[in-house]
Design a protein around this nucleic acid. Structure first.
Lengths: 157, 157
DNA sequence: AATCTGAGTCTTTATTAAAGACTCAGGTGG
DNA sequence: CCACCTGAGTCTTTAATAAAGACTCAGATT
């Protein structure tokens, strides 16, 4: 609970149009795009696979995939499983992979603050050899930040 | 570019309804909510302040603030600056502060992948005593993950 | 040749957002 | 005390998006 007599930290004004956080939010900060990324990370690669898992409509999925490809976050490719016809798939590019810290942080936050008691099955993000991975906030001096209220926004130009 | 003859990692199916990542996306994974969080982190506290900075309509702002308060991410309080009338403000709760890793990771991604050349002024997230803060992916064994393609999704039940 | 599938597009209807007028309470100035 | 201003919204109308589901079209499959 905030103390209403405390002196307020001054308002850091970075115009939305020039803020890389705001830009990132405009590019990937929408529900369907994020859910689609989750699907691709989980290994879904085909249009209908994603659509069935998410219950998204074809038109919106088509639209979002196009945007994600255009932004260079996903790439579209063709593949052919042996004995199967050629198909099209979507996969993360390097730029898409670079979103892992965001996704993992979101996953952690959801797991810690949104779970309603029991958790039957949990999505884990780990290395190929089975090591758990988690995000940490590290200060310039190498120490981990544990108290989030110690973090403030400023403008460096 | 993905090799189209590689064996595909199997599809990890966690129903959207039971996935803490998907839940987190549904709660904070929308553009306006994220932009509002950015504003509050930047020190905006009043309704009209946020509205002017973001150019969001009153009705949507009202709606999103109510949702964020209801989710326990923001709290509404009253304050009175000396010589001023009493006003209402919004501030991060502990649950809201816990989103810092997500926000900082997004900020980093935006800065690295979305900047169009020159960056006049940059939003920085740092400690109160001026130390830069960044997110890192740390493996169970303490090492940092640098190659994102080494991370895969699995289900642990 | 007829059918099936994947990967969409198109059309219609329902939801959500934008623009901007209106409300209402607390404080201020004359 | 009365008229006016401001903060913090609500309400109404119009425009943009999303949902539901029919339709398309090309490459396999029977």
């Amino acid at each position: 609970m905030k103390n209403h007599t405390e002196t307020h930290t001054s308002h850091t004004r970075v115009p939305v149009s020039e803020c890389s956080l705001a830009k990132a939010i405009r590019v990937v900060g929408d529900m369907w795009s994020l859910l689609i990324l989750r699907e691709v990370i989980c290994g879904a690669e085909r249009f209908d696979q994603i659509r069935e898992d998410l219950g998204i409509t074809r038109s919106v999925l088509s639209n979002r995939l196009a945007r994600l490809v255009q932004e260079g976050i996903l790439e579209r490719y063709q593949y052919r499983d042996s004995g199967q016809r050629a198909r099209k798939g979507y996969a993360l590019t390097a730029k898409g992979h670079a979103l892992f810290p965001v996704v993992i942080a979101l996953r952690e936050w959801g797991g810690e603050h949104l779970e309603p008691g029991n958790t039957p099955l949990r999505l884990q993000l780990q290395t190929r050899d089975g090591l758990r991975v988690e995000t940490k906030l590290i200060r310039e001096d190498g120490l981990e930040v544990t108290d989030m209220t110690d973090i403030i926004a400023t403008v460096k130009e």
